[in-house]
Nucleic acid binder design. Structure first.
Length: 572
RNA sequence: GCGCCCAUAGCUCAGCUGGAUAGAGUCGCGCACUACGAAUGCGAAGGUCGGGGGUUCGAAUCCCUCUGGGCGCACCA
């Protein structure tokens, strides 16, 4: 597909002295309103260099550009050179590109197969998968999809919270108050109850905390009985997590969690020691980060057992050795900002220049109307329940609307779960939000079902279009673009055209919501086009051209949804 | 106390590497199903961009400061 921005920059470069094409590309803007053109070039900055008033400069440039065949019109308004592309040229380019690329439209080989490790989801074993976990899970999955689409060689890692003192607590609690049957029957709920029980009891009997730490140390030393219990808890928990991942359609390449690094702790501690970074303080081993304006990082406790920062350092070094990553991404809550700053700094102090390739991608807090979520106090909303309710509601709506779907259950799943995913990816990830049933079960306005509905509607038009859509797509270049050069068709085409650059932007900023917002815009624009113009007209030539644009919109929405981890039903 | 983040329409949010009259959705109001799917579309209404300084031809956007809120700061993860 022609890069019009680049092309315009080339043309401009020949009529402006002293500016490179790259500089011009940076300066080119898309005007706030389309009546001001498709691209605009502001001339204010040139005033000093050229020693002329900006409007004069703009006037001069506009005159030089006049008559170039890719422009329909070029005018000078308020020191801006406003450029209107030839609609026919533009729309032909776009529609043919989508027809040729299909499910690859928007993809790229910019990644050159370089390795990108994405760590996401990473729930704690033996705790329920609640609405707070959805963020890392869904954002991470989307970032993985985006990088994959851009030609990177991606690795998805679920860094399970399957280690640490909490397992000491769990084991202590199980031995005192638990039994095997309950765990087997309902693993997570039961294990959670042990965890809660532990904390209740520990309030009156602080020695339990020491006992738990002691048990964890045994676990870390590989004692048989502790290891067996831990392994059992882990296996049972993973079964439940897998069920949620299946509902969400999410997979991982590795479940190497914290425990995976347990035998690499000495290695890391020695490495830190050799680098003279370790210091003893109150019986613990720390890395002093004062000169980097951070509090010290605790590497080992006074009893010698490790902390999660030790395991994160080990994980990073292991991943560099094992994957030789180009980028190592962590989709983890913003509460852990300091933790990441600390260990990435330690990696740097160890002399590893790849510290800069480790990126913490934080996101905001989810809370409930009652307050912060707390597993211990039972203030949680289970993710599985959210997904199930969304699916059930979708089913009701479909039955109400009496639409013919091939498979009610499958469609309700795609739409209901899609609604939850879409909402999660609608806002900037850094924002905190309060979970609300009303909001998550609302399917009108800027929602997942709205975008999927638009896709299904476009699919319906294509089905009703007569000639097979494939035939029309195959001969895209022969279409008469006059029929899709009207205002609403052109606006739609422009949005679709920007899809590839939107994905690049989303990747660069690690921000899936950029994709989400854009496909909402495409859906809105499509619906407007749909209302403004009759598509299935008698005139075959006109109908074919319009169907091509419908196809382009449908395919782009589908590709966009896929990047969010959502499906695009043909009917709903 | 120190550090990081957030503040834009009644509500939820875009826009933030400076550019033209600050945009959506939602709530409420008024319209449109005898064209291809009304989970839709159209219209009107809704703003001291938290306050105050500064930089600039130009600031929601950059800098300083204040206010309000969130998160974090040693043996949890």
């Amino acid at each position: 597909m022609i890069n019009f921005k680049e092309k315009i920059a080339e043309i401009l470069a020949s009529s402006i002295e002293g500016l490179s094409i790259e500089e011009i590309i940076d300066m080119l803007e898309i005007p706030t309103e389309s009546k001001m053109g498709d691209y605009a070039f502001p001339c204010f900055k040139l005033a000093k260099v050229l020693r002329k008033a900006p409007p004069m400069i703009a006037q001069g440039i506009a005159e030089k550009l006049q008559g170039n065949e890719i422009f329909e019109k070029v005018e000078n308004v308020n020191a801006y050179v406003n450029m209107f592309l030839s609609r026919k040229v533009f729309v032909r380019e776009l529609v043919c590109a989508v027809a040729a690329d299909k499910e690859c439209f928007g993809s790229s080989d910019i990644g050159q197969n370089r390795k990108v490790v994405v760590e996401f989801s990473s729930p704690n074993i033996a705790k329920p998968f609640h609405i707070g976990h959805i963020r890392s899970t869904v954002i991470g999955n989307s970032i993985y999809k985006i990088y994959d689409f851009l030609g990177y060689n991606t690795v998805r890692i679920n860094h399970l919270g399957d280690y640490g003192t909490q397992f000491g607590k769990m084991i202590v609690s199980y031995r005192r108050w638990g039994n095997e049957e309950d765990v087997t029957r309902e693993p997570i709920k039961t294990l959670l109850s042990y965890y809660v029980k532990f904390h209740e009891e520990a309030e009156n009997d602080p020695s339990l905390e020491d006992e738990a730490r002691d048990v964890f140390t045994k676990l870390e030393n590989g004692e048989q009985e502790e290891t067996r219990l831990w392994q059992w808890f882990r296996d049972e928990s993973l079964k439940e997590f897998t069920r949620v991942y299946q509902m969400l359609g999410i997979e991982f390449d590795s479940y190497a969690g914290e425990s995976f690094y347990s035998d690499k702790m000495d290695w890391i501690v020695d490495m830190l020691k050799d680098a003279k970074l370790l210091k003893e303080s109150e019986g613990a081993q720390i890395v002093d980060l004062e000169e980097h304006n951070m509090s010290p990082a605790l590497i080992t406790k006074k009893d010698g057992s490790t902390l999660y920062i030790t395991r994160d350092i080990a994980a990073a070094v292991y991943r560099k050795n094992h994957y030789d990553f180009y980028k190592n991404l962590y989709i983890v809550a913003s509460q852990q900002n300091l933790h990441f700053q600390q260990w990435i700094k330690i990696i740097e102090l160890l002399g590893f220049d790849w510290a800069r390739d480790c990126v913490h991608i934080p996101f905001g807090l989810v809370s409930l109307e009652e307050g912060t979520m707390s597993t211990r106090h039972g203030r949680v909303v289970f993710l599985e329940e959210v997904l199930t309710r969304a699916v059930n509601q979708t089913k009701e709506i479909i039955l109400q609307k009496n639409v013919n779907t091939d498979n009610l259950d499958a469609t309700a799943r795609q739409v209901g779960i899609g609604a939850v995913i879409f909402q999660e990816l609608s806002n900037n990830r850094i924002k905190d939000y309060v979970f609300s049933w009303d909001k998550v079960l609302n399917f009108e306005g800027e929602t997942g079902p709205y975008v999927q509905y638009t896709h299904a509607r476009a699919a319906s038009v294509l089905r009703n279009g007569g000639d097979s859509a494939n035939q029309i797509i195959a001969s895209a270049d022969q279409a008469n673009m006059d029929f899709i050069a009207g205002d609403s068709a052109y606006e739609l085409a422009k949005l679709i055209y920007r899809f590839p650059e939107i994905i690049l932007d989303a990747a660069e900023k690690y921000e899936p919501s950029i994709v989400t917002r854009h496909i909402v815009n495409i859906a809105q624009s499509f619906n407007k086009f749909y209302h403004d113009e009759h598509i299935l007209v008698k005139n075959e030539e006109e109908k074919k051209a319009k169907l091509l644009l419908v196809y382009a919109a449908k395919q782009t929405i589908k590709n966009g949804l896929a990047l969010l981890g959502m499906e695009a039903p043909e009917r709903m």
